[in-house]
Amino acid sequence: MTISEIFAHDYMTVIVLRAVIVGVLVSVCSSLLGVSLVMKRYSMIGDGLSHVGYFALAIGAVAGVGSEFSLEAAIPIVILAAILILKLDDSPKISGDAACAIVSTGAVAVGTIIFGFVGTSTSDICGSLFGSASVVTVTNKDLVIAAVLFAVVVAWFALYSRQIFSVTFDEAFSSAAGCRAGSLRTVLAVLTAVTIVVGMKMMGAIMISALIVFPALTATQLCRSFRGVVIASAVTSVVCFILGFAAACFFSLQTGAAVVTVELAAFIISCIAGKIVRKRK
C-alpha cells in the first residue's frame, strides 16, 4: 500500500491517524517509565514483561478471541507477572536479571505450546512477536486504553516526580527518610506492564522493550539533569516513533522494526554528539 493509496480514502486516513495517536501516547508512557527503569537497572523487566505479553496473547487465543489480540486478557496477566518479578527480585536467593530470565523464557515456552494446541497460524504468532504487519489492527478500544494509560502515567510522573527521582537515585536513603519506596516500585512495574501490552500490538513482543530503553539512554547522553533527561526522553521517543512510522508507510516496512531502527540511529547520534560536546568543555 503506498502513501497516496492510504490517503485516497477517508477511512484509511482515520485508521492511520488512530494508529499514530496510539503510538505517540504509548511512546510518551514508555519513555517516561523508561527513565526510571533504566536508571534503576531494571531494563530487563521491560524485556521480561514483553515475553509474558506473548504468553498472555496465547491465553487470549485459548479464551477463544480468535486471532484478534485481546488486551483485556493480557493486561491482568502481565501485571501479575510484573509483581511476581519484583517479588523474586526481593528474595535474596535470586538476582533481578535471573528472575526476569526465568519469567520471560518460561512464559515464551508455555505460550508457544499453547499457541500450538490452539492451532494459531504461524503468521499470527509472527505478528505477536514482531508486531502486526498492518496498522488496521489498531482498534478504537486500543485508543481508549492508550489514552487512559497516557493520562495516568503523565499525571503520576508530574505529581510524584520528587519521589520518583529520589527512589530512582537512592532507594535506601529514600526508605530511611520515610518514603514508601516499595509501593512506588510496584506502581512503576504495573504501569510498565500495561504500557508493554498496549504497545505490543504495533511493536511486537520482541521489540516493545526498545521503546522503554532507547529514549532514556539517548536522553542520558544529551542531558545532565534528571528533569532534562525526562523531557528529552519523551521528545526523542515521540520524534523517533513518528519518523519510524512514516518510514514504515513510505517504504512498506514493519512498523515496529522501523521505529526501533530509528531509535537505534538516534542513540548512536546522541552518543557521538554527547562526546563532542563534552570534549569542547
Binding site: 536508571m39 520528587r162 519521589q163 527521582f165 529520589s166 527512589v167 530512582t168 537515585f169 537512592d170 536513603f173 529514600s174 527518610a177 520515610g178 518514603c179 536522553a219 542520558t220 542531558c223 545532565r224 539533569s225 534528571f226 528533569r227 532534562g228 533527561v229
Partner: peptide
Amino acid sequence: FPATVSEVVFSGFVGRL
C-alpha cells in the same frame, strides 16, 4: 546517573513531602 546537585539536595525532602 544524570542529576544536578540541586536536584540531589532537594531529594532529601522525600519523606517530608
